[in-house]
Amino acid sequence: MKNSIHAAPKGLSALAKAWWNKLTDEYGIDDQAGLLLLETAMRAMDRMTEAAALITQHGIVTEDRFGQLRPNPATTIERDSRAAMISALKALNLDLEPIGKPGRQPGK
């Protein structure tokens, strides 16, 4: 069953939109708080993906002006974005495998 009531927010990547559609459909997320948490998770996923691409491009470490190796600043963005995404998904109770029929309990 396709949930066409709540389209993915503008500005999300194609991957994040696909996950938005999957999660709103499978878990029946349609309340305002749930949609806000899901948007937070999807935007964090996009930042995490962007940071991962920068790490792939520039490496996990960079050289400072003194020639010393330092962590690529994108590693912090990737880590923080992953934590924000996981936190939002946990707040939606999506960190547990559904038992029986997928979906959040009504009113939660």
Rank of each mutant, 00 (worst) to 15 (best):
M1F: 04
M1S: 14
K2S: 08
I5H: 12
H6I: 05
A7F: 10
A7P: 14
A8T: 00
P9A: 07
K10N: 06
G11P: 03
S13N: 02
S13Q: 02
A14Y: 05
A14W: 03
L15T: 13
L15P: 02
L15A: 09
L15F: 10
L15C: 10
A18E: 08
W19F: 06
W19S: 15
W20R: 01
N21G: 13
N21L: 10
K22V: 10
L23D: 06
T24H: 03
D25R: 14
Y27G: 00
I29G: 00
D31A: 05
Q32R: 14
Q32K: 09
A33E: 14
A33D: 12
A33V: 12
G34V: 05
G34D: 05
L35I: 00
L35N: 06
L37G: 03
L38S: 01
L38M: 01
L38T: 00
L38Y: 03
E39V: 09
E39T: 08
T40P: 07
A41W: 01
M42A: 08
M42F: 07
R43Q: 02
R43K: 13
M45S: 12
M45E: 14
D46Q: 11
R47L: 06
R47D: 14
M48S: 07
M48N: 01
M48D: 04
A52H: 13
A52N: 04
A53M: 13
L54R: 11
Q57I: 01
H58C: 08
G59M: 08
I60A: 10
V61L: 05
V61A: 10
T62N: 12
T62D: 13
T62P: 08
T62V: 14
E63N: 08
E63T: 15
R65Y: 14
F66Q: 14
G67V: 08
G67Q: 03
Q68M: 09
L69F: 15
L69D: 06
L69N: 01
P71W: 11
P71L: 09
P71R: 04
P71D: 14
N72K: 01
N72H: 03
P73F: 11
T75V: 14
T76Q: 15
T76I: 12
E78C: 07
S81F: 09
S81M: 02
R82H: 13
M85D: 07
M85F: 12
I86M: 10
I86Q: 08
L89Q: 09
L89K: 03
L89I: 07
K90L: 01
A91S: 12
N93D: 14
L94T: 04
L94S: 02
D95V: 08
D95W: 04
E97I: 06
E97T: 04
E97V: 15
I99L: 06
G100A: 10
G100W: 03
P102W: 04
G103F: 09
G103C: 09
R104H: 06
R104P: 12
Q105T: 15
P106I: 10
G107F: 03
K108P: 06
